[in-house]
């Protein structure tokens, strides 16, 4: 479980997050949603410790992220996997080397054991045989899957995904969502996804936090989205007239 308490973040005189509190539940796919500029990425970066909040605290179970020292932070981060919006794959390394990097850095496994783990991860994301390709030689969807494989190679307890569907076609986006969701359940991870993709919300959103203008505007599950009367939520999820009509039809039936 990860708990954010009264998070405020300001850059100079601009307040980006205004007293946000939310609990991300263990073993569930937690979503941070909101329009562009709502503060989602800043919130995610605060959650992983890449940014410090102006005030407030982040709790990883019983560990206060904001008060631990650098060594404790590094130890905690070894339990964290993260998929970046731009994948952040190392261009000069092959797919296999990218996935093996955390193991090379932090484990004393033999080359054979590392190879086995890499192959397992690649198989899990359906990329068998891509070991020796470079990131520039594979598609955007495949890069996302390599990013997922790299983020789960050390069996993390917490998985963070920053806009995992950005730049992907709807079908590939659903595949990535399903992959993240199933990995979350398999490893009983606490997964936090930052997205503005409505499909993701309705497919895998087990615990959803809606940010609007830096504030927590709504929280609930995907089942509650359809029946909610919250104006901010409906305006975001069912943004187009077509989707509004679709929701009304669904509710009538």
């Amino acid at each position: 479980m990860i708990k954010a308490s009264n998070i405020i973040k300001a850059f100079s005189d601009q307040q980006v997050l205004k007293d946000v509190s939310f609990t991300f539940e263990a073993g569930k796919t937690n979503l941070i949603i909101g329009k562009s500029g709502a503060g989602k990425t800043v919130f995610l970066k605060i959650l992983v410790g890449l940014l410090n909040p102006t005030s407030g605290s982040i709790w990883y179970d019983k560990i206060d992220l904001c008060s631990i020292n650098r060594d404790e932070l590094r130890a905690l981060r070894m339990k964290i996997g993260m998929l970046f919006q731009g994948n952040a794959l190392f261009d000069s390394m092959t797919v296999e080397e990218n996935i093996r990097f955390p193991m090379d850095m932090f484990t004393k496994k033999t080359a054979k054991e590392k190879q086995k783990q890499v192959d397992l991860c690649l198989e899990r994301v359906s990329l068998q045989g891509s070991n020796h390709k470079y990131p520039s030689e594979i598609s955007g969807g495949m890069q996302k899957r390599v990013g997922i494989a790299r983020s789960i190679v050390l069996n993390p307890k917490y998985l963070f995904c920053d806009e995992p569907n950005s730049g992907l076609d709807p079908k590939t986006a659903i595949t990535i969502d399903e992959l993240i969701s199933s990995i979350t359940q398999e490893h009983n991870m606490t997964t936090i996804i930052n997205t503005h993709d409505m499909n993701s919300v309705m497919e895998i959103g087990e615990n959803i936090c809606l940010l609007s203008e830096g504030q927590l505007a709504w929280q609930g599950s995907k089942a509650e989205v359809l029946h909610s009367q919250d104006y901010v939520l409906l305006d975001f999820i069912f943004a187009s007239p077509f989707l509004k009509r679709l929701r009304e039809t669904a509710l009538k039936n």
């Binding site: 992983v48 890449l50 590094r74 130890a75 981060r77 070894m78 964290i80 996997g81 993260m82 970046f84 952040a88 990097f101 955390p102 850095m105 932090f106 050390l154 963070f160």
Partner: peptide, 8 residues
């Protein structure tokens, strides 16, 4: 950032 998150 990716390396930092890994704990490097």
């Amino acid at each position: 950032d990716a390396m930092e998150i890994m704990g490097v």
